[in-house]
Design a protein around this nucleic acid. Sequence first.
DNA 1: CAACATTAAATGTATGTACATAAATTTGCA
DNA 2: TGCAAATTTATGTACATACATTTAATGTTG
Lengths: 151, 151
Amino acid sequence: MRIEDEIKQPIFRDEHQKGHINLVYTAGWLQLRQATAFKPYGLTLPQFNILRILRGQHPLPATVALLIDRMLDKTSNASRIVDRLEEKQLVTRTVCPANRRAVDIRITAAGLDLLSRIEQDGIIDVSGLRHLSATEVQQLNALLDKIRTED
Amino acid sequence: MRIEDEIKQPIFRDEHQKGHINLVYTAGWLQLRQATAFKPYGLTLPQFNILRILRGQHPLPATVALLIDRMLDKTSNASRIVDRLEEKQLVTRTVCPANRRAVDIRITAAGLDLLSRIEQDGIIDVSGLRHLSATEVQQLNALLDKIRTED
DNA sequence: CAACATTAAATGTATGTACATAAATTTGCA
DNA sequence: TGCAAATTTATGTACATACATTTAATGTTG
């Protein structure tokens, strides 16, 4: 459906404004679909993303600073997302012996199990962009990178 | 900067996954810039968007249902965003006489003033997509609409 | 008309986002 | 050594998101 119809706004100031709104709307649409897919597993999207970063490090630990560095949303509060994962025993937190300011965060066996279960159920592999061809995805990536050009 | 460098992830499963992450990341980037621009006026992005919908209706009132219909994020809680605007006396809430279940929401003179002040300061007219040409914006809109194709 | 369903908004609860501040530890340097 | 600065994480507060439930008013139907 065209963005005009999705939000029932027939006229935009210009195509640039329409593109801006379309971009934000589409990203929200994708994230809501993903969040819905993870709900049966008791995970939110940020929790899932952090679990995946931790699996990428495994068996090495990650610090909060490393998580923030890798997260899509740098301003979110990694400490509290790790809180939730720790309550569910999907990760462990131990003071880093080498630097006692830092905290070593590790994914547990239960966390690894949960991730493979989600993947076996085909939750991740279904791309949200499956309606785009390879060429179209490349165009999209180029346009998005261009949008973020700093002056 | 390329998305690979922004989130320090050199390899993606495929271009589709990269496009997905790029899309979500870029939308967040745009929204953070906008939110920062509105901060000096004491408005959040959802508050600003609701004020604009109300100005579009003015001098007619809007109901909460109408706001939800027009909002980008349908699942957000319009009642509470209106709470904040009412506290700041930028909108009024009165029970709709014709249907006492509904609530008539109207933008106040102060609300209209604030919007024009923001516009006079050029906050809105600076498009977040200014690095794209007209052709590129059209391409982007077509790609985004295609992503949201329902099966 | 009474009982029940529907509609409109508000409220409750858990989580996340944005940003400021605090607490603990380490580092660097006079 | 001692002490200020920097680093790392946690905490506090305001607001938003996601979704379930509640409250009140209106519609509907037997």
